[in-house]
Write a protein that binds this DNA or RNA. Structure first.
Length: 616
DNA sequence: TGGGGTCCT
DNA sequence: AGGACCC
């Protein structure tokens, strides 16, 4: 692999560097304006920010943040006794992610549970990650925290792009130029390799040869403007990561460059809990040897098409014309072809676009086989529909809207044999009464329409989703669409027993998770020095900060929080209101909710899932 | 091989 | 409604 890389480097920089650079520059100045198109959320939220034009592409500073092994980190926060142990988070037969202790034992993302158990000594701790509720919650908090550094675009639950250009401009105008880059700086000779077989776009730093990859390199007196801008960006990224750690207990890795493509790629070079910056002048060589799979939008299929015309790496891609790409790869979509071509030089004209509220909300579960109307109805009524309605109620509270469309998506064994990812979906109007019985009936009616003609009514996957939202002002007296809970009485949702083949109960019932706040001492330090205080003692970690989750957890047989966790919950009422006011709004709201829940719990009405639902 | 999402056609 | 892509 290294041999191939060396070959490309020679071709790129010994044989025809001038041509390549000139071509890159031409593309950069001719194509960017058409590609960056429409003004979105960004412009409305940040009216002072000028639309990006070709001249200030190099003025952009984009930070990519990736929460390290996110699900595993959250599990450690929820159960601090996991710290230091190898932890794997499972969904069905898979370890979907694991912490770094587990990785040391050879466990990887998306590894089979059996294989993971074999790899790891008896110490491996597994946690079910089928219910995404806690991850969603932490993800929202992280996003809220990052808002203050600039517009935020999320990618999944654990990745964020932050456009920090405006903040960089502010600091430079104030004469704040750091003396060093924070974290690593990619040099022109940094060796890079694609990481996993699942995601070749994840890069890792290869064996670096000392001088080419510096830690905390100085910003010289005659630094270029880009160096100064990115040095400031690296400081902002370090601050953001520090706050994620201090306020939420989350470690993150970051990449800092002039665009999204490069920031994401270099962010993977030093993980976990570290950051990497790269100057645009090094992008040319950096991207040359990367497989085209590294380009956003190039998946398995597009990669195959590229291979069929002899394009494996970005350098191969550069040698093709946009017309060729458009014809053989993007089905005539010239804009997309142009975009891929630009990316092959490390030029990414796309902007950081905050996405706004979700466009769909869905819940799914998979099974060995879910057979018959009765079993299907049971799954719908007792798990999927209540979960969906719960999330829609929260969504309504936050965004004053309700869904217009209900969609069910399913997969059968036959579909599985043919095509790996094939699914069928059917839609109807979302029932006006947002109740478990009505919605469940609607779902079953759709499934009947789709599967009724089959020899057996059986599924290996069932997904129900809400989409096409419309404004909805809840009437006074009923704050949001009501949800019937009568159905729950028929089913025991307190333990993890199977209620259908392949289905284990997903609901974890975390209740209201309290916000995780700095101690007063830390807040004073932050306010007076501007520095994130070092975690002086273990209490600086959120896992031991105020928590009321123990009131709501483990309604059934699962072990509840250790006494220490419960004791610290009492601290919850001691939170300084001044501190609370500094927090993002949704965090404040959650905290107030948590206080309300505590009250009810103390009054003897909380504490079990049954009473939680029985209450109404 | 999961349990989510986005956008395009 | 389905496909390709992202995590």
């Amino acid at each position: 692999m290294d041999g191939v890389g060396e070959d490309y480097r020679r071709r790129a920089f010994a044989e025809e560097p001038v041509e390549l650079r000139r071509a890159a520059n031409e593309l950069a100045t001719t194509s960017t304006t058409t590609l960056q198109g429409e003004a979105g959320w960004c412009d409305r939220l940040y009216p002072l920010q000028e639309p990006r034009t070709k001249q200030d592409v190099s003025k952009a500073v984009v930070v990519h943040l990736d929460l390290d092994c996110f699900y595993a980190q959250v599990e450690e926060l929820l159960d601090p006794s996991l710290k230091g142990k190898p932890v794997g988070v499972t969904q069905k037969y898979l370890v979907v992610t694991c912490n770094y202790e587990a990785r040391k034992a050879g466990i990887t993302k998306l590894m089979n549970v059996k294989e993971a158990m074999r790899k790891c000594p008896s110490s491996l701790v597994l946690r079910s990650g089928e219910d995404l509720t806690p991850y969603r919650s932490y993800s929202r908090k992280a996003e809220a925290l990052l808002q203050k550094f600039g517009p935020v675009e999320r990618l999944g639950l654990d990745e964020f792009f932050v456009d920090v250009q405006a903040l960089v401009d502010e600091r430079l105008a104030a004469g704040e130029v750091p003396q060093h880059f924070r974290g690593h700086l990619v040099g022109s000779g940094t060796s890079v390799r694609a990481d996993t077989r699942f995601r070749p776009q994840d890069l890792r730093s290869g064996a670096s040869s000392g001088t080419l990859l510096d830690l905390n390199p100085p910003v010289g007196a005659e630094a270029t403007e880009e160096e100064r801008r990115l040095a400031v960006g690296s400081v902002i990224a370090a601050t953001a990561r520090g706050e994620l750690q201090q306020l939420l207990g989350l470690r993150a890795s970051a990449g800092i460059t002039v665009n999204k493509l490069l920031s994401k790629l270099v962010g993977g070079l030093h993980k976990p809990d570290d950051q990497t910056t790269m100057l645009f002048k090094d992008a040319d060589l950096f991207t040359a040897t990367l497989p085209v799979r590294c380009i956003k939008g190039v998946g398995a299929l597009t990669e195959q098409k590229f291979k069929s015309i002899g394009v494996h790496t970005c350098l191969d891609l550069r040698a093709k014309t946009v017309a060729e790409i458009s014809k053989s790869v993007t089905k005539g979509n010239q804009e997309l072809a142009k975009f891929f071509h630009l990316c092959s030089w490390g030029i990414d004209p796309s902007r950081v676009v905050p996405k706004g509220p979700p466009k769909t909300v869905s819940v799914e579960d998979s099974f060995k086989s879910l057979e018959g109307y009765e079993a299907t109805m049971k799954v719908l009524k007792s798990v999927l529909v209540p979960d969906l309605l719960t999330r829609l109620r929260e969504d309504c509270d936050q965004h004053q809207r309700r869904p217009v469309t209900l969609t069910v998506t399913y997969r059968t064994m036959r579909m599985r044999e043919k095509k790996h990812f094939a699914r069928k979906s059917l839609s109807c109007a979302f029932p006006r009464a947002m109740d478990t019985p009505e919605v469940s009936e609607a779902c079953l009616a759709l499934l009947r329409k789709g599967l009724g003609g089959e020899a057996v009514f059986a599924m290996t996957l069932l997904n129900i989703g809400a989409s096409r939202f419309t404004d909805f002002k809840p009437e006074t007296g009923s704050r949001r669409p009501t949800t019937s809970v009568a159905t729950f009485k028929a089913f025991d949702v307190r333990d993890g027993r199977r209620i259908a083949d392949g289905l284990t109960m997903k609901r974890r019932n975390y209740g209201k998770n309290p916000s995780l706040l700095l101690s007063k001492q830390q807040t004073r330090t932050l306010a007076s020095t501007g520095e994130i205080p070092e975690p002086a003692e273990s209490r600086a970690t959120p896992s031991s900060l105020p928590s009321i989750q123990s009131h709501f957890r483990s309604p059934g047989g699962r072990p509840s929080q250790p006494a220490a966790g419960r004791r610290s919950a009492e601290v919850g009422l001691g939170i300084d209101m001044e501190i609370l006011k500094e927090m993002p709004e949704d965090v404040q709201r959650e905290y107030r909710n948590a206080l309300g829940s505590r009250k009810r719990a103390r009054e003897g009405q909380g504490g079990s899932i049954r009473t939680f639902f029985a209450k109404k």
